[in-house]
């Protein structure tokens, strides 16, 4: 099976799964579960965005939540001001992409190392967290949208049909949009990795010096991939804002840490892995939240350490290796 055929099959499979989920789940799940599922899907998209830039670009971004939060906040502020989400959405995709590009320019063209990059991106999201927390009070309004400090913007308007502000999407429809967005982003990410740009990005991740000596512009490719990651994280933020509401938590350290754990547990170097890891861990922390005996942060932290020490490759690659070995043993 050639690589192109396999990619095509994976894309078709992902779109079919997304289509089925979008069609069937709203019919069977209760509304509350469905809204929770929408949150999971938006988080899954966030995990996908980091899985793409970290697993295939080698870009160690500890603050992917920065673009997630910026996307959500831009959407909420623009939607409140415009009274219509038709133009709020593109704006909320443009702003995180632009911020990612600007930050990426400073980091990649400064040629700072991985470790510094991790620290700078983490610091960025932490400072945005502080900033968003400090925006309580009347002086902090953009247009007609109060930023609300610690409380965020509870009245984040839900998406409406394009150019028809009175016709808002029901939670079921938001779920459909979210699942399709995740499926399409997965397909787009797969396709990007098949293009010349994507293959160069992977080459840079494998050996930056070699790629550079072969004449590829390392800085520009990393910047491009980072901006795409910012775009997807922004989209995840819009979806999140639709089913919860925007608040400084979107930038918080515990969210920033969770995204890393999802990707790490799911498997670096895969695109499905992070999404699966996200769903599993979300389900686990939600369950732990109902127990209330164990602090979710404690659980996450222990999982995080175990993932690094015990399964450094992540669940999906480890499982694949074991499966392959078993299948080979089954053959005569």
């Amino acid at each position: 099976m050639t690589v192109n055929v396999r990619t095509a099959l994976q894309i078709v499979a992902a779109l079919i799964v997304a289509g089925l989920a979008a069609w069937l789940l709203p019919q069977y799940l209760e509304l509350f579960t469905l809204i929770n599922a929408t949150v999971f899907v938006s988080m899954g998209l966030l995990a996908l965005s980091l899985g793409l830039i970290w697993g295939f670009g080698g870009i160690l971004c500890f603050g992917q939540t920065a673009f997630f939060g910026i996307g959500g906040y831009t959407y909420a502020v623009a939607a409140i001001n415009f009274g219509d989400t038709t133009w709020a959405v593109p704006l909320a995709l443009l702003v995180p992409t632009a911020v990612a590009a600007a930050l990426g320019y400073l980091m990649f063209f400064g040629r700072i190392s991985d470790v510094y990059m991790g620290v700078i991106t983490l610091t960025t999201t932490l400072i945005l967290f502080k900033f968003a927390n400090s925006t309580a009070g009347d002086q902090w309004t953009i247009g007609t949208a109060p930023l609300g400090g610690f409380n965020g913007i509870p009245g984040t308007p839900p998406l409406n049909f394009p150019l028809d502000p009175s016709n808002q999407l029901a939670p079921e429809q938001v779920f459909v949009v979210a699942v399709l967005a995740l499926g399409i982003c997965y397909a787009v990410a797969k396709l990007i990795l098949r293009t010349r740009f994507g293959r160069v990005a992977v080459a840079i991740k494998e050996n930056e010096l070699r790629a550079e000596l072969l004449g590829y512009d390392v800085r520009l490719h990393k910047l491009g991939l980072f901006a795409i990651g910012g775009f997807m994280a922004g989209l995840a933020g819009i979806l999140f804002a639709n089913c919860v509401f925007v608040s400084p938590t979107m930038f918080s350290l515990s969210y920033a840490g969770q995204v890393i754990i999802w990707v790490l547990v799911g498997g670096i170097g895969t695109l499905v892995g992070p999404v699966i890891g996200c769903m599993l861990i979300q389900a686990l922390t939600t369950y732990a939240g109902t127990l209330s005996a164990i602090d979710p942060n404690l659980l996450l932290g222990v999982l995080f350490m175990l993932a690094v020490v015990v399964v450094p490759k992540g669940l999906l690659p480890t499982a694949t290796t074991i499966l392959l070995r078993l299948m080979r043993r089954g053959e005569p």
């Binding site: 840490g257 164990i294 602090d295 942060n297 659980l299 996450l300 690094v308």
Partner: peptide
């Protein structure tokens, strides 16, 4: 870095 981040979350939770 990742392991100490896990440690940090665990300490906060604990």
């Amino acid at each position: 870095m990742l392991a100490t981040w896990g440690l940090s979350l665990a300490f906060i939770g604990g």
